[in-house]
């Protein structure tokens, strides 16, 4: 496939057809836990997108040049430790140099280390693109695009769902369905609507 078509299809897949939350079930904890208000959901997603891109930028070269092909079994350990270190570093850096961003996003950063969406995207970058078919430059570009579109897809799902939940607050539901169960059913309908995008972008 041509590079440009590939990039367009990665973006469409990340946003709609292979949405991180609604079709891959990654990052369900923040999706259900931090989606009560639209603005909280928005800030959290920005922090997640940022960490996803930086984590991909660091882990992909590590995978390509250091782990491949003999040490691939170390992927899990190396990736989670690198992500934990990166998140810590971003937090310290923002606190010291870019105070306004730290004040807005800082509180979400510790949550992100154990967010499966971040570890998930770094691992998907390794499995999604055939290492032998492209040069490193292209693979790196695809991976970064993949991280960006996955982050934006996460944001789309979070913000949409936060809007739905604000309406759900006032709905009258049976007592044993209150809270989590009805939220999950709402998520099912949300995910159902995203199925309608299936087939877009090949």
């Amino acid at each position: 496939m041509k590079t440009t078509t590939m990039i367009v299809s990665i973006i469409l897949a990340g946003l709609l057809t292979n949405n991180m939350v609604l079709s891959k079930f990654l990052g369900i904890c923040p999706f259900l836990g931090v989606s009560k208000k639209v603005n909280t959901a928005f800030s959290m997603s920005i922090a997640v997108t940022l960490v996803m891109i930086i984590a991909t930028a660091v882990t992909y070269p590590i995978f390509y040049f250091l782990l491949r092909p003999d040490f691939e079994y170390l992927e899990t350990v190396v990736f989670i430790l690198v992500i934990a270190a990166i998140v810590q570093f971003i937090e310290i850096f923002l606190k010291k140099y870019i105070k306004p961003i730290y004040n807005a996003l800082g509180i979400y950063l510790p949550l992100i280390t154990t967010n499966c969406a971040v570890l998930g995207i770094t691992m998907l970058n390794v499995t999604d693109f055939d290492v032998n078919a492209y040069s490193f430059g292209k693979l790196y570009l695809f991976s970064l695009t993949n991280a960006l579109s996955a982050g934006l897809g996460f944001m789309l799902a979070m913000v949409l769902f936060a809007g739905i939940r604000q309406r759900l607050e006032t709905a009258d539901v049976p007592e044993f369905m209150k809270g989590l169960p009805i939220t999950l059913v709402a998520a099912a309908l949300c995910s159902l609507s995203f199925l309608g995008f299936a087939g877009i972008g090949g």
Partner: peptide, 22 residues
């Protein structure tokens, strides 16, 4: 009955509480 996510048992509980959510 369970109405919320498992926040009480979540290791990241403290930062989550600061985030002012459920």
């Amino acid at each position: 009955i369970v109405e919320k996510m498992g926040c009480e048992n979540c290791p990241a509980k403290d930062s989550c509480e600061n985030a002012g959510n459920g």
